[in-house]
Design a protein around this nucleic acid. Structure first.
Length: 136
DNA sequence: CTTCTGACA
DNA sequence: TGTCAGAA
């Protein structure tokens, strides 16, 4: 099938489909006219890519265990463990930062309700870090 | 009409 | 990621 059909059947934009290819997550073959030709498996492949992207993994990380996960239908691929663990650690870090922001705001709310004055805007370390891992 | 690549008021 | 251009 051509890119238009795959996009329609997966709900992924043409742009993203081409981007996944750039990131080596999918490798469609080229027809004589230069059009990308996807195998019918591309549908499930793109869906698993979307799944991991939503899990917060970078395209680079996904590229690492995609084939393994794709073949061993949700089975075990030991190489994914370290990736999953680092992701969990990353989430713990984000949760820690969010907790700081939360308590900071909570304190301000209380101050306002109690008509109490508190310290001015004090930046929270690392709070502005969106932890991006993408980009080739 | 569909796809391709490259680029960004 | 969207989107537009110019070409095939």
């Amino acid at each position: 099938m051509k890119i238009g059909e795959l996009a329609h059947r997966t709900g992924v934009s043409l742009r993203s489909l081409r981007y996944y290819e750039q990131q080596k997550l999918i490798s469609p073959i080229r027809a004589d006219n230069g059009y990308r030709e996807y195998s019918p498996f591309a549908v499930e492949q793109v869906e698993t890519i979307k799944f991991y992207l939503n899990m917060g993994f970078s395209t680079e990380q996904i590229g690492g265990f995609l084939n393994c996960v794709l073949q061993n239908k949700e089975s075990f691929c030991r190489d994914v463990l370290p990736v999953y663990e680092s992701k969990i650690a990353e989430l713990d870090e984000q949760i820690r930062l969010l907790g700081r922001i939360r308590s900071n705001l909570h304190e301000r709310v209380q101050a306002i309700l109690e008509e109490r004055r508190i310290s001015p805007g004090i930046p929270i370390e690392g709070a502005m870090d969106d932890g991006n891992h993408d980009d080739r």
